[in-house]
Simulated scan of single mutants.
Amino acid sequence: MKAIISRVHSGNKIKRTSGERVFDAVNVFIMIIWAVSAIYPFWYILVMSFNTGADAAAGPIWFFPRVFTLENYAFVFQYDRLHSAFIVTSLRCIVGPVISVFVTMLAAFALSKRFLPGRKTVLFFFMLPMFIGGTIISNYVVIAKLGLLNNFLVYVLPGAFGFFSMIIMRTHIEDLPPELQESATIDGAGYVRIFLQIILPLCMPIIAAFSFFAVVGNWLDYYTNLIYVTNRSLSTLQYVLYEIINRAEANTLIDYTKTSGAAQRRLMSMANNTVPTPEVIKMTVMVVVTFPLLFVYPFFQKYFVKGMLTGAVKA
């Protein structure tokens, strides 16, 4: 008791020992190292994207561009199909998550009813694809039979339902007080009204979390475009950026026959030391791909902990 009293200042603050100070200092040092190691790769990519290719090839760049330029971004953004690909990807990131979350929530709401006939059988068949997946050929045949080749719906329909997401949403719905649905049923509300006016509002945190996951998945996916879409007007941003990297490595970044006259004059008038190299083009493409998600993430961050944990643990 005397030891505790002796550690208290006149301001009712506990006096910290030298061991506690050392422990806090070590923790702060470790967190700083961890933060730098996590942030620096992004900073390095950003710095390289703003540096000229010839100067970047001359030696490593660590913290700031040695020769600042915006020509790397000019080369990437004047690619002939980049703007249409951005529109297609933006539509995909809007339509895809809406359909995915709505379909998954409908399935979760229905399967949360223990009196549903054949409930265990449906869960069993929903679970099978998690362990037994189709091959590329079988998936291609199914997509072709459904008429989704070179169709915008191929981006949103095949991935509209996720069993793992449905299980978490179903558990969250089951954790809600059953009296809410019972009282609504007594008042004459049907299942559609209960779902729209009670279940959806109470599931907004988990819906926001999975919506962000769906947006990220749709934004970063280029495999679907690579396998199922050959129509160039339906190309996604990731696939077009993939083409840009391939052309940069082959030293054929810009197809002069498909660029406008102003773009041709701009490219031909550039000095040789400002022409982007494949290395800086890769860094620029990574900035274009990654950084938009970094600006969107803070708006969804507050929903992650609550949204993921409320349906992950069964009380």
Rank of each mutant, 00 (worst) to 15 (best):
L148R: 13
V142M: 11
I167W: 00
I136L: 15
F161T: 03
L148H: 15
F161M: 09
L128A: 13
S165D: 02
F163V: 15
P158Y: 02
I137F: 02
V122Y: 11
Y140C: 03
I143E: 08
T121P: 03
F131Q: 10
F126R: 10
E174L: 06
G133K: 14
L153M: 11
P177F: 12
V154A: 14
M169V: 00
V154Q: 14
L157W: 09
M127I: 05
A144C: 07
I137R: 06
F125H: 00
G159Q: 07
A160I: 07
M127D: 08
Y155E: 03
L148V: 09
V141Q: 13
G133S: 15
I143S: 02
I137H: 02
G133L: 11
L128V: 15
P177R: 05
V156W: 07
G134T: 05
N139F: 02
F164W: 12
P177G: 08
F131K: 03
S165H: 02
H172T: 00
H172C: 04
I132N: 08
F164Y: 08
T121E: 04
K120M: 08
Y140E: 13
T135I: 09
S138K: 04
I167G: 02
T135A: 04
L153K: 05
P129F: 05
L128S: 07
I173M: 11
I137G: 01
V122C: 07
E174K: 02
F152E: 04
T121N: 02
V156D: 06
F125A: 01
S138D: 13
L153G: 14
F164K: 06
A160V: 01
A160R: 02
L157P: 04
I173G: 15
L146E: 06
T121S: 02
M130V: 12
N150G: 02
F164G: 06
D175K: 12
V122M: 15
K120E: 05
G134D: 08
F163W: 14
G133Y: 07
L153P: 01
K120D: 05
G147V: 07
I143N: 01
L128M: 13
R119H: 03
F163H: 05
P158M: 02
I173P: 15
F131S: 13
T171Q: 11
D175Y: 12
T171H: 03
F125Q: 00
K120N: 12
F161Y: 13
V141Y: 13
K120H: 05
H172M: 01
F126N: 11
R170S: 09
N150P: 00
L128P: 06
V156T: 10
H172F: 09
F152P: 06
V142P: 12
V122L: 15
L148T: 13
T121L: 11
L176M: 09
I143D: 06
F152C: 04
M130T: 14
L176V: 04
N150M: 01
I167H: 03
F131D: 12
N151E: 01
E174N: 10
V156F: 03
S165R: 03
I173V: 14
F163A: 10
L123Q: 14
H172A: 09
P177S: 06
F125S: 01
G133A: 13
Y140Q: 09
M166V: 11
F163Y: 14
G134K: 11
P177M: 08
E174T: 09
K145A: 09
M166G: 06
